[in-house]
């Protein structure tokens, strides 16, 4: 293990979770009224808003694709979002990379050929971060997109797995991320378990990689269910109101 913090004690992690446990996840839709669709996620201590604008005419014009919509994604962390010092405002290199790979996830799932010449803007704003923000951001953005009514071929979810010593763990928080021996954020299309985002650094054997992927896919059932419940919630609420 890197560093000298004991991340796992008697089989339990610092926050009491077992190796394969997710943090608590709560999602609420339609939190930004001006957006076409939006969602807010609390994933452990992460607090993230995702909002979708569009499809609208792609501008500047040269960015347009005459055959399909272009997805413009911006992931950004608020300068006050971490428990450490004030971050710099705006996009750093990490944010540029995360925006790119996140955009690619949604290019895959959105039925883009239904909206030629347009752009779909996807904004992911991290208000508070505690490790795993790109995964939480993707999970939240998927719900925002679905809430916007933009057609998709599946509802992706994302979560990371990693390694502490020789133990493969799911859903690393900030401190685990800092001292872990591997971190692997993955986004999956649950219908056929296609991998649409995969990043990793640290060290993993083939066996550990497979174990990590298994934890991710197993936990996906729970994450997908939370996403679907959040999407249904406003309709269930209004139906109950009508009944009452």
């Amino acid at each position: 293990m890197k560093g000298n913090i004991e991340l796992i004690k008697n089989g339990k992690r610092l926050d009491g979770r077992l190796a394969g446990d997710l943090r608590d996840i709560k999602i609420k839709t339609n939190v930004v009224k001006n957006a076409q669709g939006s969602a807010y996620i609390e994933w452990g201590n992460n607090k993230i808003i995702a909002a979708v604008h569009g499809p609208s005419e792609a501008l500047p014009r040269h960015t347009a694709n005459p055959n399909k919509a272009v997805v413009k994604c911006r992931y950004m962390m608020a300068p006050f979002s971490s428990s450490e010092e004030h971050g710099r405002s705006g996009m750093n290199r990490r944010a540029i990379e995360i925006s790119k790979v996140t955009g690619e996830v949604f290019e895959n799932v959105i039925l883009r050929d239904q909206f030629p010449g347009t752009e779909i803007n996807l904004y992911i704003e991290v208000l508070q971060s505690d490790g795993g923000t790109r995964a939480a951001g993707i999970t939240c953005a998927a719900v925002a997109l679905a809430a916007s009514g933009i057609p998709m071929r599946d509802l992706p979810y994302s979560v990371s797995a990693g390694k502490v010593g020789d133990t493969v763990i799911l859903d690393l928080n900030k401190i685990e991320d800092n001292y872990s021996d591997a971190d692997m954020p993955v986004a999956i299309l649950p219908r056929n378990n296609e991998i649409v985002l995969l990043q990793m650094d640290g060290s993993l054997t083939t066996k550990q990689y497979s174990d990590a992927m298994e934890l991710i896919i197993e936990s996906g059932k729970k994450i997908s269910a939370i996403q679907r419940t959040a999407l249904l919630e406003p309709y269930v609420a209004s139906e109950n109101k009508n009944k009452g």
Binding site: E104, E107, V196, M200, D201
Partner: peptide, 13 residues
């Protein structure tokens, strides 16, 4: 394995 990165909009199984 030390690092991995998937790129572009397609998927892998």
């Amino acid at each position: 394995i030390r690092a991995m990165q998937k790129g572009m909009s397609g998927a892998f199984t």
